[in-house]
Each structure stands twice: as structure tokens, then as C-alpha cells.
Design a protein around this nucleic acid. Structure first.
Lengths: 187, 187
DNA sequence: TTGACGAAACCGTCTAATTGGTATGTTATG
DNA sequence: CATAACATACCAATTAGACGGTTTCGTCAA
């Protein structure tokens, strides 16, 4: 009937699009606004199509979270490759990956916002716990000093502050802060 | 008809109870589970009664957030009163207030969880931004060093980690971490 | 090269339950 | 008795998701 049916089939693209729309919704309007109807409507994909890719809402949210963690992993890996010093490398990678967010296009920022939104759903927290534990075990040799822990936590705080728009500070203050954090990873 | 009607009228108590139930729901099941029906059902107060105290859902959420900030303020104030050193006093108060959460009864932890859940709702973020700005202006004289900023951010990170149950560490590691954070506020 | 065919990708509709909210009570309290 | 503090009964809208249909795609035989 409609032309929608005749659209070329591109499962991966559609899936990706659905996740992005869900991310934007969560980011802009909060968790309560992420409904199947809203995602379907805003993406132009029918509800049936949406439920074909994600058999239920929970699966959609989990996929969203996984996709998010993938992005984070890639960003960290990239930052770590450019870092010659082994000691504290992961901590700096984590810090720089989070810092880089500020200069990213809105679309990427949406994904960051989503982290926080998703963490507020108890069912998704375990995934985050797992991720943290895996990393902390992997980099126990290079990133387990007290100061590294301080920096990791401060990075989370900074990430939170960026997302919420709290802790406004001018560029020079921010630079000083970041320099200090980097310095702490090298002690 | 039912005895509920004959219950003694205690507006303040009922209001408090409604907020607590909402907090527990948000904490345990996430934002999406906080519905008027759920709050009403779990509290034993009718929906009409609930909507008498909070004319709409948004008002309920805002009241929840405000109540939360009050608690935080009181905890910080208390910690600050026990701190003789002016320099970095607010930062330490903030840190200690957040640390104290771990040893609180579940009910209080629920309230902490709620912070995160509520922050994920865009409409409530402004309130948090205001709070942060007010504090940072109030304590600009004693708590604006770079290291204080690091500690404030790390405290947020630690708070987040406690809430999410990530970053598991043994007691000695935690002690070392806290000692280091306190030390940083004194530099 | 073709074409048949099963599976995957999507669409549109329907529904039972739940949602936030209103309207109208009833009871207690000052 | 006036008003605040509740309760009960509703309502329109939205919700998650089940279902059956239609179209495209990969593949493999001929």
C-alpha cells in the first residue's frame, strides 16, 4: 500500500537509526519519554518494525546501553594509543575520552546523556558494574595507585558535571584542572 | 464506607510518606516505575489523596528533589560544624556527607539513589545546577583551589560509584582513598 | 543466468492494561 | 459550618506488545 513497505531493506541501518532516536529521546526528554510509540514515531519506522529488531522494550534499552559502552571503549582505546607512557595510561585514556565529549557533535553528546539516564534504571546497572570490574582487572598493573583512583572518580564527576551543565568554569580553570588530573596519573 | 476514610488526618505525615514511597520506587525500580498509581498503591493512600498533596506528577517529582537537597544540605552542614579548619571545609563537608551515606539505613540510601534518577530527568537538572552554583559562590573564599575542585568531582564520582555498586574496593583501599582526598583539600 | 523458495525485514491493526488527571463525593478538624 | 484532608469513581489518552500480513533478500538448484 504505502511506499514504506517498498523501502529498501537495510536492517543494520534501521537498527542503528532506532537506537539513535531512542538516545535522542532519552537525552532530551528523559527516560519517561522513551516509549515504543515515541521511538517508532520519531524514527519513521513502524512499531512492528521496531519490535522486530528489539522484541521488547527492555531489549531496546539494553542494546542502547551496549552500543554506548562500545563507543566509550573505542574512544578510550584511541586515546590510549596516542599515549606512550604505560603507567596510568588507562586512567588518562578514560579521562581524555570523557573530555573529548565536549567537542563532539550533539549526536554524540546525546549518547553520553543516555549513559546517565540508563544508569538510573536498576536493571542496567549490572552491565555497568561488569564493565568497570573488567577494566579495573585488566589494568591492575598500570592503573591501581590511589591517585589513579582519585582521577578515575574525578573523571566520573567531571563527566557528570558536563552532562548536567553544573560546575561551570572558564577555560583556564578547566585547563588547570585537567592538567592537575593528568599530573596525578603520573605520580 | 471503608475505614480509610475514618483514618486520622495527618497531612504532614501522609505527605512525607508519599515522598518516601516515591523515593523507594524510583530507587528500586527506576524512574519509569514512579507512576501515580504505583505511589498511591504502595503507600496505601488513595490516588485522590496523593493528588491532593501534589496536584500533578511533576509537582511530586520536584518535591522529591527538593526534599533530597534539604537532606544533603543538612548532612553537609553537620559535617562542616565538626570541622575546625576553614580552608576546604565545604569540600570536606561535601565529601563526608557523601561518604556517610554508606553507613545509613536503606531508607536514606533510597534518597541518594533518587538523586541520580531525578537528575536523569531534564526538567529537574536546572534545580541541581542552581544548587551547585549557589554553593560554589558561597564558598569561593575557602574552596576554590584546583585540588578542591578535584576532590569535589571525585566525591561526585565516589557517590556515583557507591550508588551503582561499581568500583568495588576493600576497606583499606577506601580508607587510603579518602585520606588522600582529605589531604588534597588541605593543600 | 534464472527463478523458486524459505527466511528475514518490515508494516498496520488491534487490544488489554495502565497512565495522568478530573469530578464529586465523604469525613474530620478548627 | 467552612475548609482542609482524604476517598471513590470515572475518563480519555497512552502504553507495551501480540498478531498476521506484505515485501525484499539470500541462496541454491536447474
Amino acid at each position: 500500500m504505502s511506499t514504506a513497505h517498498h523501502r529498501k531493506k537495510q536492517p543494520l541501518l534501521v537498527r542503528q537509526q532506532l537506537l539513535e532516536v531512542a538516545a535522542r529521546l532519552a537525552s532530551e526528554k528523559g527516560m519517561m519519554a522513551v516509549t515504543l510509540d515515541a521511538v517508532s514515531g520519531a524514527s519513521g519506522i513502524s512499531k512492528g518494525g521496531l519490535l522486530h529488531h528489539f522484541p521488547n522494550k527492555n531489549t531496546l534499552l539494553e542494546a542502547l546501553f551496549d552500543s554506548l559502552i562500545e563507543r566509550l571503549d573505542r574512544a578510550i582505546e584511541e586515546a590510549m594509543r596516542a599515549d606512550p607512557l604505560p603507567h596510568g595510561r588507562f586512567t588518562r585514556g578514560y579521562l581524555r575520552a570523557c573530555l573529548a565529549l565536549r567537542d563532539q557533535p550533539q549526536e554524540t553528546k546525546d549518547w553520553a546523556q543516555v549513559t546517565m539516564v540508563l544508569l538510573s534504571e536498576p536493571q542496567l546497572r549490572q552491565r555497568w558494574r561488569d564493565w568497570v570490574r573488567e577494566r579495573s582487572e585488566e589494568y591492575v598493573g598500570t592503573d591501581s595507585s590511589v591517585d589513579a583512583a582519585v582521577v578515575l572518580l574525578a573523571t566520573d564527576g567531571l563527566w557528570l558535571a558536563d552532562l548536567l551543565g553544573s560546575h561551570e568554569m572558564d577555560e583556564s580553570a578547566r585547563e588547570k584542572l585537567v592538567d592537575r588530573l593528568i599530573e596525578l596519573t603520573q605520580l
